[in-house]
């Protein structure tokens, strides 16, 4: 059951990550900040927040069993290094996602290439952290399966 509870975390995180990278591309390609850019700029933090809340809920309420299995299994570093890093770096990813609409609004106001590049950098950083979250999440999921003897 807990596998299903983690789905909103993974899906919203993956979608948010893809959209940050799409938005970065749009900002670098176009000369003006359009309606789509502004819509995506608000959608990104919403998806990151959903992923953050769902992941946080799962971590606080359902991870203990997996954590014990990982720590007792052949890959304890999957918790000690990967999960610990993931849970704390995610806070930074959330901060960057919240900065996306501010950066895009500023790019629109300044209407310069440099400002659009800054907004693209913010998106790229949030996206890179999102990709790292997905990768680390995959390692933790795999570690739980290996430790439970399911892989």
């Amino acid at each position: 059951m807990s596998e299903f509870l983690i789905l909103p975390h993974v899906v919203a995180g993956a979608l948010g990550t893809i959209l940050t990278l799409v938005l970065a591309g749009l900002l670098l390609r176009s000369a003006k900040t359009g309606y789509l850019d502004r819509a995506l700029a608000w959608l990104v933090p919403a998806l990151y927040a959903l992923s953050f809340a769902a992941g946080g809920f799962w971590y606080l309420n359902h991870y203990d069993e997996g954590k014990a299995a990982i720590k007792a299994g052949p890959v304890p570093w999957a918790h000690g290094v990967v999960m610990e890093t993931k849970e704390h770096v995610f806070l930074g990813a959330m901060l960057l996602a919240l900065l996306v609409p501010v950066a895009v609004a500023e790019a629109r106001q300044l209407n310069s290439v440099e400002a659009r590049r800054m907004a693209a950098v913010v998106c790229a950083l949030a996206g890179a952290m999102g990709l790292a979250m997905e990768g680390m999440g995959a390692v933790v999921s795999m570690a739980i399966r290996i430790s439970a003897g399911g892989a």
């Binding site: 900065l99 790019a107 300044l110 310069s112 440099e114 590049r117 800054m118 950098v121 913010v122 950083l125």
Partner: peptide, 11 residues
């Protein structure tokens, strides 16, 4: 604070 400096700072 220019957008260029802000980008480097955030990165």
């Amino acid at each position: 604070l220019t957008p260029g400096r802000a980008s480097w700072l955030l990165a």
